[in-house]
Simulated assay, not measured.
Amino acid sequence: MKDKATGKSYAKIIWFGEHSVVYEKPAIAIPIYSVDVVATIQRIPTGQQIHCRYFDGPISEMAENLRGVKTLITHLVSLFGAQRLAFDLDIQSKLPAERGMGSSAATAIAIVRAFFDFFEVNLTRSQLLKLADIEEKITHGNPSGLDSATASSNMPIWFIRNKINEQIDFNLPTSSLVIADSGIKGKTSEAVSLVHDNLVDEPESSQPLIDELGKIAETARNALATTDDVLLGKLMTQSQRDLAQLGVSNHTLDTFCQVACDNHALGAKLTGSGLGGCVIALAKNQRDAQQISTALRKAGATQTWIQSFKNYQFSTGEAHDNLVR
């Protein structure tokens, strides 16, 4: 056992497949290295304490809104037979909450990694996802697993709900992704219900949009592997049109996409459930990324991040991890 250990995870962005993924169409999500969560655990003389932006004090006194995190910590303490161990858990997160960036999953991943490092026990990816799911089931009820899979990955994730969850080939050494926070909380339940109602009430117009979003994700996978950033940009813009027709965009998100494209973005779209949250834009190079970022801030974005892809780890053709049931 160490005196001090850390665990890290990342924000997740859905690049392609919002909403269509609910209907078992493929989605592509990526970890955002510049937006991370770091959990640090260390021994202290007495007590079991946690420090995060939502709570500061004894773990036993954590409020109901943090029940998922509390349950995960309790499970990990029991797993390692450390009920009497005195420790301090500090969580530093750069992720904004309720923006579709997977804040709760990233927190869970970081906590699990910190505990396993602290007790010097090897952690497999399957174990990691299974343990993170303890928190996610409490926080989100019926999580797809996409958030945890992406927050723990070093490559894009190819995801088909209840079927496939694997890391995929990726090769975009010069491009960057700009993420802009609209400042509006995402409305996941409302957006998912809206799309569902549209499919029931107007299937002739809504179902083709869901089908096309799935086909876009399939095309994007090939573009990612073949360094076709121009095609990726076009696919992003087409996705935005489809999502807007499904009713999950809004004036702010539409405006941000247009601003990005007016400032040399190869394409732009909302990410996540929509009705708020973030917009992403693909830039050909760092110079364009900076210009897009500045323009989006001037247009009202509360925060922007630039994710370069040059340091992403590429697939080597080895066997991928399968979905943890």
Rank of each mutant, 00 (worst) to 15 (best):
F116N: 02
T40L: 13
L123Y: 10
K137L: 03
I138F: 04
A108N: 02
F116L: 00
G100N: 11
M101H: 02
S104E: 04
A97V: 14
D90W: 05
F87G: 03
L89P: 08
L129K: 00
I111F: 10
S126N: 11
Q49W: 10
H51P: 01
V69D: 01
E120G: 02
Q48E: 13
T124C: 06
I109N: 06
P45Q: 13
T124A: 01
R67D: 13
P58D: 12
F80E: 11
C52Q: 08
L72G: 06
L76N: 05
F80K: 09
S103D: 07
Q83L: 08
K137Y: 11
Q42C: 00
Q42T: 03
A39C: 12
R53N: 06
K137H: 12
V121I: 04
T74D: 15
L123F: 14
R84H: 13
F118Q: 09
I138K: 10
I109D: 05
D56N: 14
P45T: 15
Q48K: 15
Q48L: 14
V121G: 04
A105F: 05
A132P: 00
G102E: 03
G141D: 06
F80H: 08
L79V: 03
Q48I: 04
Q48G: 05
Q127K: 11
L76G: 04
V69K: 03
A114M: 01
S126P: 00
V69G: 03
T46F: 09
L123P: 08
F119V: 02
I111L: 05
G100R: 06
H140E: 02
Q49P: 10
L85S: 00
M101K: 10
L123E: 05
I91T: 13
R113V: 08
Q92T: 08
K130F: 13
D56Y: 00
L85Y: 06
D56V: 03
A97Q: 10
A132E: 11
K94S: 07
L85H: 01
E64L: 14
I91D: 08
T139V: 15
D88R: 14
I73H: 08
A82L: 06
A39S: 11
S104L: 06
V77I: 15
L89I: 13
S126L: 03
E61S: 15
V121Y: 09
I134V: 07
L76F: 04
F55Q: 08
P58S: 05
H51K: 04
E61P: 07
A114D: 00
Y54S: 12
I111V: 14
C52A: 09
V121M: 02
F116V: 06
R53M: 09
D117M: 13
A63Y: 11
E120S: 07
L72Y: 14
R113K: 14
I109P: 00
L79C: 00
T71E: 11
T40G: 01
R43Q: 03
S78H: 06
E98F: 02
L131S: 01
T71F: 12
A108T: 08
M62F: 15
L129F: 11
